[in-house]
Amino acid sequence: MSVSADKSIDCKGLSCPEPVLKTKIAINGMESGQVLEMLSTDPGSANDIAAWANRTGNELIETSENDGVWQFFIRKS
């Protein structure tokens, strides 16, 4: 499945809690149904973004990791 993003943010190099905070800010500026791509090198992000999505009701469509870079696709609720 290939997901196309309406917006992409780069959180590579940032540590907790910044990837989550930047994801939230980006989502706030988007329309319902739009998809955000977020890239992170923080290993905690995998669990953190899942927890954040679960709590905020946004949908984590896809998570993948390649060479230490996590890629998340999140659909705004």
Binding site: C16, V20, K24, I25, A51, W52, R55, T56
Partner: peptide, 12 residues
């Protein structure tokens, strides 16, 4: 500071 800023990002 980390917990409070993350909490508001989680709609708390």
């Amino acid at each position: 500071l980390i917990l409070a800023s993350t909490a508001v990002a989680m709609d708390m």
